[in-house]
Every structure is written in structure tokens, then in C-alpha cells.
């Protein structure tokens, strides 16, 4: 009890988070002034719908990053589960069955990744390089390299349904964000995701079943990616074999901008949400202003290096100060 209350008193919004919120706000204000179409209901809605599946993948990646790993299969898991849903629709399955099929696909993929990382002790980066290669090929083989259409009308219509004026898909993203946030902050399993990422030996000695936590994180990542796949098929109404080809790197970038670390133990769901929001607002703004969209890619790279670089520079400065003080004393 005491530990929890202590933590609550100490809780402050981290500086980087304030910076990220400020960045988003400034971006919004700037774009509203520069482009008359930016702050219209239509543009806002399309922005929310477009970022919904990437947001789910970012959540997936955030969980794995906090746990000290990396999951490069999020994009191909999204594509494969969307493909499975589409193929189930093709044979006339009920939408519930099709969606369930997609989710099961995600869970199977996550279990496979978990097996490679936990039991074969392969580094998660290289293990998911391998499974990503396999999964992407399976998508190509199943689709024969062609676009799969023929999703039922009512299913695709979900993409334009609004709840209180907000697109349903985005409402779901927010719901997932809240659930995952509380899961990570308030539950024992959620805390152990951080503990394993921060120091796996320490977590193991404190009695955490580290293997179970790792498995859980990869399965959750697969499941969230599969939900992203469902969102994708709802939004596009088809499955493209190249869907999500670049998303692993995009979502890693978003999560790192949102405060996660490749060394594990750090990160938050809302930070990642702000990260992906900043990316999509930037893309949208650049489109509206008629810039070459590739400036966004360049800017993203610079932002990534400076944000992560600046935080590690702070650490170096702090360390050298501490050592100087130590010498003086």
C-alpha cells in the first residue's frame, strides 16, 4: 500500500511528455493557420480513421519495447490477419468468425515469436526479422501477390460510422489506449512488463516469471497487430499484399518519440499515442500544404535522433557532474 501511495505522490508528467504535447498543440495551431482545410471536421475525421491501425501497431510495439524487446512482425502480422479475415469472408463466413479468425492468427503469430525468444533464446530483433520474412511471404503466397477485395459492405461501412461525431475506429483506439494504460500502470502483470524490461535478472530474483511475461507481451503484440489488421480491412475495404511493409520501423519511431527506449523498461501508451499522432498530423499537414511528402520522412529521422540523443546526452551530463562532485568530496 505504502509503495503505491508513494508512487502517486511522486507522479509527475515527464518533461518529454510535456514537450510532446506542446509539439502536437503547436503543430495543430500552426497547420490551422497555414491551411484552411486542416481544421475541418472532414479532415480531422479522415486523419483519425487513417491513423487507427497504425496506432494499434504502435501500442503493440510499445509493449514489446517496454519489455526490452522489439517486434518487427507487427506489419506482416497485420497483413496476414487481414488476409485471413478476407479469405474467411470469401468462403461466406459470418463477420464474427472472420474477425475471430484474424485475432487467432495474431495470437498464433505472437506465440511463435514468444517461442523463438523464450525457448530458443533468439534475440527478439533477429527472431522477428526471420518471422517477418516468413509471414510476409505467406501473405504473398495466400494472395498470389494480388489485392484481395470482396469484404462485405456492412463490414466496410463500419469505417464511416461515427460515435458522438468521432469515427468509431478512433474511439476504439482510445478505449484500447485507456485499457492498456491502466493495465501497464495498475496491474501486477503490467508492472512486471516494466520490471523485466528494466532488469531481467532483478525481475527474476524478485520472483517474476520472466518467461511468462515475455510470452505474454509477444502474444499481446500479435493480438493488437491483428486488431490493427481488422481496422485496416475495415478502412480500405481490401487487403493489399504490401500492407504494413514499412510499419514496423514507423511504429518503432513513434514509440521512441513517445518516450520508449530500445533498452527497455521505459515508455507509455499515451506517449506512443502522441508520437503516432504527431507523425500523422505532420504527414497530413505536409499533404495539405503541398510539400513534397518525403520531407516528412527526413524530419522524422531528425526528430528521432535528436529526441533520443538529447535524452541520452542529459544522462551523460548528469553522470559526469556526479563524478566531478564525487571527486571534489
Amino acid at each position: 500500500m505504502e509503495g503505491i501511495s508513494l508512487e502517486r505522490r511522486k507522479f509527475r508528467l515527464p518533461i518529454s511528455m510535456v514537450g510532446l504535447i506542446l509539439f502536437n498543440v503547436l503543430l495543430f495551431i500552426g497547420l490551422s493557420i497555414l491551411s484552411p482545410t486542416f481544421l475541418t471536421l472532414r479532415n480531422m475525421r479522415s486523419l483519425m480513421v487513417r491513423m487507427s491501425e497504425l496506432a494499434m501497431l504502435t501500442f503493440a510495439q510499445t509493449l514489446v519495447l517496454i519489455n526490452g524487446g522489439m517486434d518487427l512482425t507487427v506489419g506482416s502480422a497485420m497483413a496476414l490477419s487481414g488476409t485471413i479475415a478476407g479469405m474467411l469472408f470469401k468462403v461466406g463466413a459470418h463477420p464474427v468468425i472472420a474477425v475471430l479468425g484474424a485475432l487467432v492468427t495474431g495470437i498464433v503469430i505472437g506465440t511463435l515469436n514468444g517461442f523463438l525468444v523464450v525457448h530458443l533464446k533468439i534475440d527478439s530483433f533477429i527472431a522477428t526479422v526471420a518471422t517477418n520474412s516468413i509471414l510476409r511471404s505467406v501473405v504473398y503466397l495466400l494472395l498470389r501477390g494480388r489485392v484481395l477485395s470482396g469484404f462485405p459492405k456492412n463490414y466496410v461501412l463500419l469505417g464511416s460510422v461515427n460515435l458522438l461525431g468521432i469515427p468509431l475506429l478512433f474511439v476504439l483506439v482510445i478505449v484500447f489506449a485507456i485499457i492498456l494504460h491502466f493495465f501497464l500502470r495498475k496491474t501486477a502483470l503490467g508492472r512486471s512488463v516494466y520490471a523485466v524490461g528494466a532488469n531481467i535478472n532483478c525481475a527474476h530474483i524478485s520472483g517474476i516469471d520472466t518467461n511468462f511475461v515475455k510470452y505474454f507481451v509477444f502474444v499481446a503484440s500479435g493480438l493488437l497487430s491483428a486488431i490493427g489488421g481488422v481496422f485496416y480491412t475495415i478502412r480500405i475495404g481490401a487487403m493489399i499484399p504490401d500492407a504494413g511493409l514499412n510499419s514496423p520501423l514507423e511504429v518503432v519511431t513513434a514509440a521512441l518519440i513517445g518516450g520508449a527506449s530500445v533498452k527497455g523498461g521505459k515508455g507509455s501508451i499515451f506517449g506512443s499515442l502522441l508520437g503516432i499522432l504527431a507523425m500523422y498530423v505532420l504527414i497530413n499537414g505536409f499533404n495539405l500544404l503541398g510539400f513534397n511528402p518525403f520531407w516528412e520522412v527526413v524530419l522524422l529521422g531528425i526528430v528521432l535522433i535528436t529526441i533520443v540523443g538529447q535524452s541520452s546526452m542529459k544522462k551523460v551530463v548528469k553522470m559526469s557532474r556526479a563524478s566531478r562532485r564525487g571527486r571534489a568530496a
Partner: peptide, 17 residues
């Protein structure tokens, strides 16, 4: 002192863009 994976992920984006 940023991990190589992040720096090169960033420069990959910058060069490609």
C-alpha cells in the same frame, strides 16, 4: 551515445527522404 539501431534507423529515413 544513442544505440546504433536508432541512429541508423533515423539516418535511413533521412537518406531515403
Amino acid at each position: 551515445k544513442v544505440p546504433a539501431i536508432i541512429v541508423t534507423l533515423g539516418t535511413m529515413n533521412i537518406f531515403r527522404g
